[in-house]
Simulated assay, not measured.
Amino acid sequence: MESKSLTALVSAFSRAYHAEHNPVKIFDDRIARQLLTDEEYDSISANMSRAIAFFQPGFSGTQEQALRQVVDRQLSPTPLGRAAFAERALAAAAALGARQYLIFAAGYDTFAYRQPEWASQLDIFEIDHPVTAADKQARLSGMRMDPPPNLYFISADLREPDWQRHVLASPGFNPDRVSFCSLLGISYYLAKEEFRQLLSGIVSLLPAGSGIVFDYPDEQTFTPQAGERAQKQLMMVARAGEPMQAGYSCSELERMLEEMDLRIDQHLNPEEITKLLFHAYNESQPEHPIEAFDHVNYCLAVKR
């Protein structure tokens, strides 16, 4: 939380790689590559191609083939899938009247800079730790990319008990307007009580009809029943200094959301994610199929 997140940079790399190498895309982040320096991109590429020995022992092929295998199998399924899921849900929410989009722990999210025409009716708020927010804005400044007029930056440490005051102090934020919130890639790294408190804090900012989209690991993630990909992912992020901490059963998650007056509007498991979000890409690239990540579910919850 106090320095650039390695997992956030790798996530941006995976989105950039996918956008550059595929005519049919699961998610098209055409700006992600510009956020990374050439040195960062080349370094991540080299490290991940060498990591094939860890992720897939016995692999035989070129360095580029190894990189593609690691990206498609290990790195990109969740960043691509959850972003596609979130932005589809956002489009539907905007069509139904949502007028604020809050991106929590925004990291290197680029929606505000590639927003479609329908998003002009939204006020967009990127909420992130001051260090991460400053790093992203420095990168955008280096790209000479001016913030769009409907974008607001909010620096806030979401671990602080009163972080909501930073949102309420933003001149563009209206707590009475129906909003849509994304909280992607966060539940993994918080203890259960921390995640519950964060969700509760977000809900306190929203009127009825507002939505929250997030991804989360299931209850088998930290057990011997977890798939090989999941086990190796746990080891990888732990080595990066960002260990995962909690997983949830569907029933446990539903109870927690119910306590906050949230109902589950949409829920996808890995099989459903692959079928709904990855089908067109997989039809176009049968030699490089991508499957949704083991034990990772997506959820859209709406405040009653």
Rank of each mutant, 00 (worst) to 15 (best):
229 R>S: 04
229 R>A: 01
239 R>V: 02
212 I>Y: 06
246 A>V: 11
237 V>K: 00
211 G>A: 15
252 E>Y: 14
257 L>K: 07
255 R>P: 05
253 L>G: 08
237 V>G: 01
228 E>F: 00
280 A>F: 09
273 I>R: 12
206 L>P: 00
203 V>F: 02
240 A>R: 03
200 S>E: 11
276 L>A: 07
213 V>K: 08
271 E>L: 14
280 A>I: 10
280 A>W: 10
277 L>A: 04
264 I>C: 09
219 E>Q: 10
252 E>F: 12
249 S>E: 03
209 G>V: 12
236 M>L: 10
270 P>N: 14
250 C>R: 08
250 C>V: 05
226 A>F: 00
203 V>H: 01
228 E>G: 01
278 F>Q: 03
223 T>A: 08
227 G>H: 00
209 G>S: 12
252 E>Q: 09
261 D>L: 13
272 E>Q: 15
210 S>F: 12
253 L>Y: 08
271 E>K: 15
244 M>T: 01
270 P>K: 13
259 E>I: 08
258 E>P: 03
270 P>R: 09
206 L>T: 02
227 G>D: 01
221 T>M: 15
206 L>E: 04
252 E>K: 13
226 A>Y: 01
207 P>I: 04
224 P>Q: 11
223 T>L: 09
214 F>M: 05
235 M>F: 03
237 V>D: 00
269 N>H: 11
264 I>S: 10
249 S>M: 04
264 I>K: 07
251 S>P: 06
203 V>A: 06
227 G>R: 00
255 R>K: 07
242 E>S: 08
269 N>K: 13
280 A>V: 13
206 L>M: 03
